[in-house]
C-alpha cells in the first residue's frame, strides 16, 4: 500500500499499543485532536485513556513519563514542536539520559520522546529548529531519525521496544512523503546506516530531512556523469561508523549534508569521524553542506538557509577533482 511517513508512525504506535498494554501515548493535543501533525490520530478512540492529553508543560510531561517508566509503563510522549521541547531539556539531560547510569542499571527508562523537528514547512518562529545535536551530545540517549516510510514504522517500533530512552526525531517536512510499503515491516536495527543509492565517485552522508535532498542531488549529478553514493544514517546514536567509513573508503570523497546549523553540530562530528577513519583514502577534505549558523529563518528566507540540491552539487564540485584546492578555504597568500 502507499503510505505517508506520518501514517506509518501512526500505524507503529497503534500496533505497539495493541501488542503491549503498558505502552501509553501522551502529550499536548494528542488525544481527541490526534496531534497537530495527526500522528496520534484515532489512538484515543481505539485505546481510550491510554492516549491522553496532559497539562501544557513539557518538563512535567517528560518528568511524569520518567516516573511511569520507573513503574511498569512504556510511555511515548510527544513534544509538539522541536523548540517546545526545550522546557523538558533538564529532565532529558539530567534524568532521562542518566537514570540507568546513576542506578547502575537498576532503573531502566524504556520511554520514547517524539520530537517533530526541522524546517522546510514555512513555519513561523520557533517551529523549525534542528535540535538533534543537543540530544546526540548527551550520553545515555539514543537518537533516531527516519527518512523513509518503512523506517518510520520500523524504527518507531524498535524505539518503543528498546530498554533505553530514545529521542525520536521526526522531520516535519517528511510527514507527507509517501512510499509503497506493506506493514508491519522490519528494517535494519538501530546503529545501522543504509546505502540509499550506490555510487563510486563521492559519498553524501545525510540523515532525516537531508536524505531526500542528497538523493535528488545524486540523481542530478548522475546526469552530469558523476556517480554519488548516498548513505542515510537513520540513527545518530548509536552511530554506524563502519558503514560510513566503508562507503567513503570506496569513493574517496565525502560531503555531509545536514539541515541543522553546522557549527558544533552532528555534521561536524560526522566529518571528524570520517577524516579520522578514512584519511588515507580521501582525495579531498570532507566538506559539509548545512544550514548557516543563524537562528532558523522566517518563511521568506527559508529557501536561502536550507541546504538544497544546487548547494550540494556546488560542494561536490569543490572536492578537488583536478587536484585544484578548494578556493573557499585557501589561505590569503594562496588566494592572491
Amino acid at each position: 500500500m502507499t503510505l505517508s511517513i506520518g501514517k506509518a508512525l501512526n500505524a507503529a504506535l497503534r500496533d505497539a499499543m495493541r501488542e503491549d498494554d503498558t505502552v501509553l501515548m501522551f502529550g499536548e493535543d494528542v488525544g481527541a485532536l490526534g496531534g497537530v501533525f495527526r500522528v496520534t490520530d484515532g489512538l484515543a478512540a481505539e485505546f481510550g485513556d491510554r492516549c491522553f492529553d496532559t497539562p501544557l508543560a513539557e518538563a512535567g510531561i517528560v518528568g511524569m513519563a520518567v516516573g511511569m517508566a520507573m513503574n511498569g509503563f512504556r510511555p511515548v510522549v510527544e513534544m509538539q514542536f522541536d523548540a517546545f521541547a526545550y522546557p523538558a531539556f533538564e529532565q532529558i539531560a539530567s534524568h532521562v539520559a542518566k537514570m540507568r547510569n546513576r542506578t547502575r542499571g537498576a532503573v531502566n527508562l524504556p520511554m520514547v520522546i517524539r520530537v517533530p523537528y526541522a524546517g522546510g514547512i514555512g513555519g513561523v518562529e520557533h517551529h523549525s529548529d534542528s535540535s538533534e545535536a543537543y540530544y546526540a551530545h548527551t550520553p545515555g540517549l539514543k537518537v533516531v531519525t527516519p527518512a523513509t516510510v518503512a523506517d518510520a514504522y520500523s524504527l518507531l517500533r524498535e524505539a518503543i521496544a528498546d530498554p533505553d530512552p530514545v529521542v525520536f526525531m521526526e522531520a516535519k517536512k517528511l510527514y507527507w512523503a509517501k512510499d509503497e510499503v506493506s506493514l508491519p515491516v522490519t528494517t535494519a536495527p538501530f546503529g545501522t546506516a543504509e546505502v540509499r543509492r550506490e555510487g563510486t565517485d563521492a559519498t553524501l552522508v545525510a540523515y532525516g530531512p537531508a536524505v531526500p535532498v542528497a538523493l535528488e542531488a545524486a540523481a542530478a549529478a548522475a546526469e552530469d556523469g558523476r556517480s554519488l553514493e548516498v548513505v542515510d544514517l537513520r540513527t545518530l546514536v548509536p552511530f554506524d561508523d563502519s558503514a560510513v567509513a566503508e562507503s567513503v573508503r570506496k569513493t574517496g570523497r565525502c560531503v555531509v549534508v545536514a539541515e541543522a546549523t553546522g557549527f558544533a553540530g552532528v555534521s561536524a562530528e560526522i566529518a571528524a569521524r570520517v577524516q579520522e577513519r578514512c584519511f588515507h583514502s580521501l582525495w579531498a577534505p570532507v566538506l559539509r553542506v548545512t544550514g548557516w549558523d543563524v537562528p532558523y529563518p522566517p518563511p521568506v528566507l527559508e529557501k536561502y538557509h536550507l541546504p538544497g540540491v544546487d548547494r550540494v552539487l556546488d560542494t561536490v564540485d569543490r572536492l578537488q577533482w583536478d587536484d585544484v584546492p578548494d578556493p573557499r578555504f585557501l589561505v590569503p597568500e594562496q588566494a592572491t
Binding site: M64, G67, M70, E90, S94, H95
Partner: peptide, 24 residues
C-alpha cells in the same frame, strides 16, 4: 529513588510513579 540534586526535578517522577500505580 536516587537522591536528587537538580532541585525539584524528582517531583514529576514521583507523580509518574504514583499515577502509574493508580492506573493499575
Amino acid at each position: 529513588a536516587p537522591q536528587c540534586t537538580p532541585l525539584a526535578t524528582h517531583a514529576p517522577h514521583a507523580v509518574g510513579v504514583a499515577y502509574a500505580a493508580r492506573r493499575r
